[in-house]
Design a protein around this nucleic acid. Structure first.
Length: 517
RNA sequence: GGCCCCGUAGCCAAGUGGUAAGGCAGCGGUUUGCAAAACCGUUAUCCCCCGGUUCGAAUCCGGGCGGGGCCUCCA
C-alpha cells in the first residue's frame, strides 16, 4: 500500500498527492512563547518531525516551517506579572522551547519565523483583504468578514449561522458574530514594544494572520501539509484557511493533519488537563530532571497513533514524580537500550556512533520482512504504534540470534557466521530508529551521585573482589562443600547490599557489569 | 444545543470485511553457582450492548450505553 494520509478537511485517508523526489512543504503551528514548555507542547513537534523523517526516507524533499508567536495577550499579561518586557520573555521562552526540541531529536524544522518580524506582510495581506471586500476596519481594529467567505466553516464542519447561537454576540465593532480580529488597535497603557504603526492606526496583529502571512511568504500560496494540535482546528485553522484562501484564491493546504492531545486525570478523577492551579503541569525540563531522557519521552509520544489522545492516566504529582504511563514506557524502552548495550558487547562498536546506515543496501529475506511491515504501518497514515511493535519483534529476533549462537561468548563457542545476520538486523533497527527519531543520542547512564570516577573505581574494586570469590567457589568441585557455600553467600551478600543501593549487578560470559536501577 | 472522535486482555496499544500485532504486569520453563538480562511457552473462543447486511464483521449499517475533543485565542 502506498502512503495514505488522513485529512481533517475530508475526514478520510487519502493517497498522498506527491511523488517521491518531489518537494513537499509543511507548516505546523508553533508555540506562543510565554511559559516554559510542558510535555504536551512536544506532541506536535515530535509527530511532525517523524512525518518529515519518514517522508524524507521515502525520497521527498521536505521543507518544514514552524512559527513562533512572540506577541499576544498572554505574553503581555505574563511579562507584566514577571516585571519584564514582552521581547525579553519571548526570547527566554523561545530558548527553552528550542532546548526541548533538541533533546527530543526534533531536528527537522527548517525555519522558525517570528510574528513580530512579519508585521509588514500582515499589513499587506490585510490591505488586500480589505480591498477585496473580505475584511473591514472598525475603529482602530480590522476584522475578517466571515459572511463574505462562501465556504467558511468547511474545515470544522461548522455552519456560520450556528456560531451565532452559541453565546456569541455581535460586539459593537463586528458585523457578524463569527468575525475575528486581524488587527487589534492599541489600548491605552499597552507597552510600546507591542505596538506597531498601520494604515488603520497603531496596534498589533490578531492571532491567525501571522500563520497565513508567514506560510505564504516562506512556502507559497498552497501548502502540501498543514499541521497542528486538534485544539487549533477551531478557530485558529479555520480562520487561517479563510484568510489565506480569500487573499490568494487558491487552495491553502492540500492536507490538514491534526494530532491528538495529551490527557491526564488528577486523583479525584475529574480534571483532565494540565493546569498551573492544580499543580499537575509536567514541564519538559522537570521530566528531564526526574530522569526521563528526551528519547524516552519521544518514544512515549509515538507509541500511540498520532490522531489518538495520549493517555497519561491518573497522576498525583504530590506522591509520584512521574505519571505511571511514563514509567511503563521507560520499562518498554529499556528493552531497546539493553539491546544497544548488548550490541556493543558483541561487536565492540557503539550502536549510536559507529553504525552508518546505507538505505540502498540489500537485505536478506528474513530481515526484509520486518522492514516491509514497518513500512506498511508507516504508510498507513504514519502508524507509529504499529511500527514500534515491529521494532520490538525485530529486537526479540536479534536477541534470539545472539542467544542461540552464543554471540557474547568467547571465540571457540561463538558461531561467527551468524554475526553477519545479527549485524544486518541491528542496522535495520538503527534505520527504523532513525525514521522515528530514536537512537540518535547515547543515553546517559543513571548516576549514583558523588564523584563519578570514585564511584566507578569503587564499583570496579567490589566487582573484582566478588569475582575472585566466585572463581574460588566455582573451583571447588564438591557441591556440598561448606566453604563453597560460604563463599557464594558472600558474593550474594555483595549483590544484595548493592541492590539495596539501587545498583544491579549482571554476571555475563565476558564479565560483570553494573547499572543503576 | 451543534460538529467531530473513540470504546480491543489486569493495564497500554496495533488491527476498518477473511477468522485477534506488540509492550507492561502475571504464571510455567531454558539459561545462570544463585540472580539479573535474554530466550521459549502461556494469558481475549473473542473485540461496550442490541439488532441488521454478508458465505464471512472487532471491522459495514441502524439503535442504545459509556468516554473524549472543539464551538473566539489552550499545543
Amino acid at each position: 500500500m502506498a502512503l495514505q494520509v488522513y485529512s481533517t478537511l475530508t475526514r478520510k485517508k487519502e493517497p498522498f498527492h506527491k511523488k517521491p523526489g518531489d518537494a513537499v512543504t509543511m507548516y505546523v503551528c508553533g508555540p506562543t512563547v510565554y511559559k516554559p514548555s510542558h510535555i504536551g507542547h512536544m506532541v506536535g513537534p515530535v509527530i511532525f518531525d517523524t512525518v518529515k523523517r519518514y517522508l524524507t526516507y521515502l525520497g521527498y524533499k521536505v521543507t518544514w516551517v514552524v512559527n513562533i508567536t512572540d506577541v499576544d495577550d498572554k505574553l503581555i499579561v505574563r511579562a507584566g506579572e514577571l516585571k519584564t518586557t514582552v521581547p525579553e520573555l519571548a526570547t527566554k521562552m523561545t530558548d527553552d522551547y528550542f532546548d526541548c526540541l533538541k533533546k527530543l531529536n526534533v531536528t527537522g524544522i527548517d525555519q522558525f519565523p517570528k510574528a513580530t518580524e512579519h508585521i509588514d506582510g500582515m499589513i499587506a495581506m490585510m490591505a488586500k483583504l480589505i480591498e477585496k471586500g473580505c475584511a473591514y476596519p472598525a475603529d482602530g481594529d480590522v476584522y475578517f468578514d466571515v459572511s463574505k467567505d462562501q465556504d467558511y466553516g468547511k474545515l470544522c464542519g461548522f455552519d456560520p449561522e450556528q456560531l451565532e447561537g452559541a453565546g456569541r454576540e455581535v460586539s459593537g465593532k463586528k458585523k457578524n458574530p463569527g468575525d475575528f480580529a486581524l488587527w487589534k488597535g492599541a489600548k491605552p497603557g499597552e507597552p510600546k514594544e507591542v505596538t506597531w504603526e498601520s494604515p488603520w492606526g497603531p496596534g498589533r496583529p490578531g492571532w491567525h494572520i501571522e500563520c497565513s502571512v508567514m506560510s505564504q511568504k516562506l512556502l507559497g500560496d498552497t501548502l502540501d501539509i498543514h499541521g497542528g494540535g486538534l485544539d487549533l482546528r477551531f478557530p485558529h485553522h479555520e480562520n487561517e484557511l479563510a484568510q489565506s484562501e480569500s487573499a490568494s484564491d487558491k487552495t491553502f493546504a492540500k492536507v490538514w493533519m491534526h494530532n491528538g492531545l495529551l490527557k491526564l486525570r488528577t486523583p479525584d478523577g475529574k480534571e483532565d488537563k494540565m493546569s498551573g492551579s492544580l499543580g499537575n503541569v509536567l514541564n519538559v525540563a522537570d521530566a528531564f530532571d526526574r530522569g526521563v531522557s528526551g528519547e524516552l519521552l519521544r518514544f512515549f509520544l509515538i507509541s500511540t497513533h498520532y490522531r489518538s489522545p495520549i493517555d497519561l492516566g491518573t497522576w498525583d504529582p504530590k506522591t509520584e514524580p512521574l505519571p505511571s504511563a511514563i514509567e511503563n514506557a521507560r520499562k518498554a524502552f529499556d528493552t531497546f537500550i539493553r539491546f544497544t548495550e548488548r550490541f556493543q558487547r558483541i561487536t565492540g562498536q557503539s550502536f549510536y556512533d559507529s553504525l552508518k546506515v546505507d538505505p540502498r543496501r540489500t537485505l536478506s529475506v528474513d530481515m526484509s520482512g520486518y522492514l516491509s511491515r514497518f513500512g506498511e504501518h508507516m504508510n498507513d497514515d504514519f502508524n507509529t504504534g504499529g511500527a514500534v511493535g515491529v521494532m520490538f519483534e525485530l529486537v526479540t529476533t536479534l536477541n534470539r540470534t545472539a542467544d542461540l549462537n552464543r554471540l557474547e561468548d568467547s571465540a571457540p563457542k561463538r558461531d561467527d557466521r551468524s554475526l553477519a545476520t545479527f549485524g544486518e538486523g541491528a542496522m535495520l533497527l538503527k534505520e527504523m530508529g532513525q525514521i522515528l527519531g530514536l537512537f540518535q543520542q547515547k543515553p546517559e547512564a543513571a548516576k549514583l551521585g558523588g564523584d563519578d570516577n570514585l564511584v566507578a573505581g569503587l564499583m570496579s574494586l567490589l566487582i573484582d573482589l566478588r569475582n575472585n570469590l566466585r572463581t574460588t567457589a566455582k573451583g571447588i568441585a564438591d557441591k556440598a562443600d561448606p566453604t563453597k557455600k560460604a563463599l557464594f553467600d558472600q558474593t550474594d551478600l555483595i549483590r544484595k547490599r548493592l541492590a539495596e543501593l539501587n545498583v544491579t549487578l549482571e554476571d555475563r560470559p565476558a564479565g560483570t557489569t553494573w547499572r543503576v536501577g
